[in-house]
């Protein structure tokens, strides 16, 4: 008998989310980007549509980054200047998006004011034409002030702003709703909390196609399999018609991968693991690559070489495999 290709027919699809506001929509971005929209599991082009490729956002911090030395070295000429840094990521490394982390707002750190943080974001907006993702410093109260201000001052730019969490979502969700930005909803590796949070945010009036799920991944070797399986379940939920799980997914790849000593450790005692200069970027690229297989739509990354590898991996996977 001749083999007949086994095709799944899913009843629903992943929401298509637009990132970045252009002149037509009241923003200043050179172009907008779309993510999501898949009607099948990752890269099974033969049975469904994969209309948008995953996008890579490179991370820029507003203060000197607290990164392991070998990673930080990659940006030594720019890490004190977020604007130059962002430009380098776009011009040289072809980042699709810039991921601005406002660590400077940290009350225990530089304690920058909401106005100062907004000024940084605005200057990056002026310097690059790509859409931006903005994240706070992690202090809930301060982030609400800072992100509220950024959302207001950058109305029309359709930023992606995070993070909304189960205990703290109202203020940031309201800011995204009023000023028309996209929201990142973060849940700690828990599909039920993930759904709950999406419902809460949606009930406030934010449309489902302006929400992105951050499932809070673990890095390679440190619990990535939990994230992998949660993401597979989220994606399957979307395809099977669960509207509350139909959002595209964002993964904090750079942050998690570079926490592993396998990525940054150098020197004699780690010789059995080979050279750090290869191992490090590959650790980050592998973290991204595996999560792409689970349905990741937006990858927040750091190392230029890792970015390059994942760009190649994505372009390979976007080739048609129709029978």
């Amino acid at each position: 008998m001749a083999f007949e290709v086994v095709k799944e027919r899913y009843m629903s699809k992943v929401n298509e989310v637009v990132l970045g506001g252009t002149a037509e929509t009241g923003g200043t971005r050179g172009h907008a980007l779309k993510v999501g929209g898949q009607t099948t599991l990752p890269y099974l082009h033969f049975e469904g549509e994969v209309p948008n490729k995953p996008i890579i956002a490179m991370e820029v911090t507003d203060v000197e980054p607290n990164w392991p030395t070998p990673l930080k070295e990659m940006f030594k000429d720019v890490y004190n200047d977020p604007v130059a840094w962002a430009k380098k990521c776009v011009d040289e490394y072809k980042a699709d998006v810039i991921y601005v982390v406002l660590n400077g707002a940290d009350p225990d750190g530089a304690n920058k004011t909401p106005e100062e943080c907004t000024a940084t974001v605005k200057s990056i907006l002026e310097a690059v034409a790509v859409p931006l993702i903005i994240k706070g410093c992690g202090d809930g109260e301060k982030d609400n002030e800072v992100l509220g201000k950024v959302a207001e001052e950058c109305a029309g730019e359709n930023l992606m702003i995070g993070n909304a969490e189960q205990e703290n979502y109202k203020s940031i969700a309201a800011a995204c709703m009023v000023h028309k930005h996209t929201l990142i909803a973060l849940s700690p590796l828990d599909i039920n909390i993930c759904k709950q949070l999406n419902i809460l945010v949606n009930e406030m009036g934010l449309p489902l196609d302006r929400i992105i799920i951050d499932p809070m991944i673990g890095g390679l070797g440190y619990g990535i399999e939990y994230a992998y399986s949660i993401m597979e379940r989220i994606r399957m939920g979307a395809l099977q018609g669960d509207k509350i799980l139909s959002m595209p997914m964002v993964c904090t790849v750079g942050y998690e991968a570079w926490r592993a000593k396998e990525a940054y450790s150098d020197g004699e005692e780690f010789q059995s693991w080979g050279e750090q200069s290869f191992r490090g970027p590959l650790w980050e690229a592998m973290t991204a690559g595996t999560l792409i297989q689970a349905g990741a739509d937006i990858l927040l990354m750091r190392h230029p070489q890792a970015v390059k590898l994942v760009q190649k991996n994505i372009s390979d996977l976007m080739e048609s495999n129709k029978y």
């Binding site: 396998e262 290869f278 191992r279």
Partner: peptide, 20 residues
């Protein structure tokens, strides 16, 4: 066959095949 290339792959294999 370089160690720094093989280690990340073996790590992922171990992660993926862990019994959930």
């Amino acid at each position: 066959t370089a160690k720094h290339f093989v280690l990340p792959l073996l790590t992922w294999r171990q992660n993926l095949y862990t019994d959930p």
